[in-house]
Each structure stands twice: as structure tokens, then as C-alpha cells.
């Protein structure tokens, strides 16, 4: 497949490649005291909401980013007119997520970075080249293996899929695909059409309500 090109500018990319920040959080000193603990490199408690930035360094290697791009597109292949995840920058989002300094992404970071290395290595063992360079059938076959619930990499699969789907459907392109038609100002709120209400009514009556 085509090499994935990050959608951020070169200067920002260079900044991310610079020294990785120490992200160890200081443990709260007092037991049972609700104390704010500043997250290093977090966006803080009063960020500019109209010009959002995620200020932390990105930690994926290019190889991991390429594997990410290939995997996102196996999970949600392009289906015209709907683009694939890599066409709208979802791999950058996953990199942003696993690089985040916040506590709640810590487990994802660990599992996903290890999983990306695993699947890339497994592809090399099985097919002689990395995951991103595999044929479509090879990529799909390997994905099917970890999609099995009893596979050791299944947790990696579910976490990665969560980020792919979340990253995709939160974009305007994702809205179009899934059918979200809100976020537009209306003079009157229409509610569902008569036809939808009739369908619902029939379904309710069918179960005796």
C-alpha cells in the first residue's frame, strides 16, 4: 500500500521527534485528599477552546505509524464515497492518543505499541515482510487471527479497533457515513418524520406496546 504521510507539518513533526518528555506522575502526597495533579505536557485546565492543540510529543516510530495506517484501513476499508481511515488522518489521531501524557490512555499506549511491533514481526515471520507491506489477503488474514476472542493479541485488537472507529466516526467524513445529520442550526426542530413514527408504531405494536 501507499506510504502513509502524516498530516501534520514538518516543524511540528520535528518537535515531536525531539527528546521524549518524562511522563512519570508524582503520586498525590495526601491519602484521601482530592488534589489536582498537573499532567506534564497536558493542555491544562484552561485551554484555548477555539484553537485547540495537543501539546505533547508523538512517540510512534515511522514503522509503527505505517503499521497503524495499514491496520486502520483493514478494519474500515474505503467504500466509495467514504474514505478509508488513513485518507482522513486517523493514524495521526491514534499516535496522538498513545502519546498522550494522561493517565487514562496509559494502558492503550502499552498494549498498542507492543501490539504494533508484534503484528509487524509476525508478518515478517509469516510472509517475509512487514505488515504495511503485506498483500491485502495477508493483512486481512493476520487481522482475523487476532480478532478471535481467544487469541493472545485480542485485547490489542479491541483497543485498536476502538481507536480506529472512534477516530473515524468523530470526523465530518465519518458523520456522513454513519448518518449523523445534526450540528446545523434550525429554526424549528422537526423531530422524526411521520413515516419513521409509523414504522416505530408498528414495531411497538408488534411487541404489544
Amino acid at each position: 500500500m501507499a506510504v502513509y504521510t502524516s498530516r501534520i507539518d514538518r516543524r511540528t513533526a520535528l518537535k515531536w521527534l525531539s527528546a521524549a518528555a518524562a511522563t512519570t506522575l508524582a503520586a498525590p502526597k495526601m491519602v484521601r485528599a482530592a488534589t489536582y495533579v498537573k499532567t506534564p505536557q497536558g493542555y491544562g485546565t484552561d485551554p484555548d477552546m477555539l484553537n485547540p492543540t495537543s501539546p505533547w510529543d508523538r512517540i510512534m516510530t515511522d514503522r509503527q505509524l505505517q503499521t497503524t495506517a495499514a491496520m486502520t484501513d483493514v478494519i474500515l476499508p474505503e467504500e466509495a464515497p467514504y474514505p478509508s481511515p488513513s485518507q482522513i488522518g486517523v493514524p495521526d489521531f491514534i499516535n496522538e492518543w498513545v502519546s498522550s501524557p494522561y493517565e487514562q490512555t496509559k494502558d492503550d499506549k502499552k498494549t498498542i505499541l507492543a501490539g504494533l511491533d508484534w503484528i509487524d514481526g509476525e508478518a515478517k515471520t509469516r510472509f517475509g515482510h512487514g505488515y504495511a507491506d503485506c498483500a491485502e489477503s495477508e493483512q486481512t488474514g493476520l487481522m482475523a487471527t487476532i480478532a478471535e476472542t481467544d487469541n493472545a493479541q485480542h485485547d490489542f485488537f479491541t483497543r485498536f479497533r476502538k481507536l480506529t472507529l472512534g477516530g473515524y466516526y468523530t470526523t465530518p467524513a465519518g458523520f456522513k457515513d454513519i448518518g449523523y445529520i445534526g450540528n446545523v442550526p434550525l429554526e424549528r426542530y422537526p423531530g422524526p418524520t411521520d413515516e419513521m413514527k409509523a414504522t416505530l408504531d408498528a414495531r411497538l405494536q408488534a411487541i404489544g406496546i
Binding site: 497536558g42 485547540p52 495537543s54 498522550s100 494522561y102 493517565e103 468523530t170 458523520f175 450540528n183
Partner: peptide, 18 residues
């Protein structure tokens, strides 16, 4: 107003800061 989650850090999810 109208900003979508893909414009926000981490798709707008909750963090200790917000």
C-alpha cells in the same frame, strides 16, 4: 459552538484537566 470532536485533543474525551 459547532466544533466537532476531531478538532479537539483526544477527540474531546475527558481528562484530569477537563
Amino acid at each position: 459552538m459547532f466544533n466537532t470532536n476531531d478538532e479537539a485533543p483526544l477527540r474531546g474525551v475527558s481528562t484530569p484537566d477537563k
